[in-house]
Design a binder for these strands. Structure first.
Lengths: 233, 233
DNA sequence: CGGGGGCTTGAGGCCACTCAACGATAGTGG
DNA sequence: CCACTATCGTTGAGTGGCCTCAAGCCCCCG
């Protein structure tokens, strides 16, 4: 199994003000923005959780590593999503920018004080945590019990829903990211996509393999054995 | 893949009072108790979430099914654990008693009113949700990237920690349950346990295969490639 | 135009699954 | 109390789906 390396030259949002980026004196929480270049680490697993991040543009992957480098991506976060809301002192994942990504930074202490002051904020935090939990629970089923083909189909449907819903996918992530999200290898992901193209469900938009047209969503959805209505004898 | 059936003769806690079991007039939330026999369904996936349950004795499994019967158990819940806290209208899993199980029932509406009245209750709910999320996130890594042997080791260590921590495990669940929790087959689970016995890490306590002594926890833990300190180049 | 990374495709191997047989255990009824 | 039976767990043999290894293509970018 390949061991991947992580660069340690990531920007430090702690020095945002030093860098001349104004920090917003919001009445609710202190805000500021930052842009991460593609592949840069936003925070590391087990680091103290100083900030919560809202993705304004781009995409973020959050993952865990095993000592030998095996990686499991738990989620991709796109525009509007909140990243790093741990409800605890430490980050449980590493977070990296999948592509050039702009985020809004929210200081955790200021978020917490806002939450204690305002029940609505608190309720929002619970809602977002529940949302993450539901996503993780569905992903457990995918990783534990779905075939490689079913996983790739489920991934494409999820991305179709979250990215555009126009039938044309512009995936920000590489095949390696997809593989590490689905618990597969890049070759297996590639073969599944090729198969879907072969049978006429998908098509690439030239000139790249990351823009995908869904030609027959009906049929694509049919390959996903979703949990909707499990038959009970 | 085998399609398993679910009995539909489960008791209905809705009729608790009709059944002569007093419902506790607690100042905070309305409480009552109920005992489920081994294998009985407590609630079904997508059913309206009327109750939240606290396990008083026994064990509960929560799972999702695919249409063809493939099952993924998301968690086992033992004494003290809360089950069915969905923060939403519907249950996201089916819950069943693994063995004869006594639970305390908490009406969801009464819990919600308690939460809005008391920030401490609300904070507890967030804490429990976060706890579930952390468990699910760790399980994603297990299902996505660990080998069969590593999964079984991780399972035994988890159960050792949660059930007794005395070095003697009395597993309430069958090999099938374990397999469906770990995303494996019963044969693979069995082989991994046999291997651990063969090398002298485990031992069965007669006369059953569900009582296990951990002879060398050091070595057992060594087989678990936990996420503790991933090496970074 | 040369180099490199990302993606695809093919060939072969291995880990976990499938199928099957058997022993042990627990539950059932005579 | 003891056959009888069903269920659970183990073990072996063989298969197959996904992984590994490798080659080649394409696009991007200096």
């Amino acid at each position: 199994m390949l061991v991947r390396t992580a660069s340690d030259d990531r920007p430090r949002p702690k020095s945002l003000n030093d860098m001349g980026i104004a920090s917003d004196a919001n009445p609710v929480v202190s805000l500021s923005e930052f842009t991460y270049r593609s592949g840069k680490e936003i925070y590391g697993e087990n680091e103290p959780a100083v900030y919560v991040y809202q993705v304004l543009k781009g995409a973020v992957r959050t993952y865990k590593l095993l000592p030998d480098g095996r990686r499991q991506i738990s989620a991709f976060h796109v525009t509007g999503d909140i990243v790093g809301l741990e409800n605890g002192e430490k980050h449980r994942f590493t977070a990296e920018a999948v592509v050039e990504t702009k985020v809004r930074l929210i200081r955790r202490p200021s978020l917490e004080s806002a939450a204690s002051a305002d029940p609505v904020v608190f309720r929002d935090i619970l809602g977002m945590t529940t949302r993450s939990l539901r996503h993780a629970e569905n992903h457990l089923l995918l990783l534990g019990r779905k075939t490689a083909f079913e996983r790739v189909v489920a991934f494409l449907l999820e991305m179709d829903e979250r990215l555009t819903a126009t039938g044309v996918l512009s995936l920000p992530m590489s095949r390696r990211d997809i593989a590490d999200y689905l618990g597969l290898t890049i070759e297996t992901v590639s073969r599944a996509i090729s198969e879907l193209r072969r049978i006429g469900v998908l098509e690439f938009v030239s000139p790249t393999q990351r823009k995908i047209v869904i030609l027959d969503r009906q049929r694509l959805a049919g390959f996903d054995c979703e949990t909707r209505n499990p038959v009970r004898a």
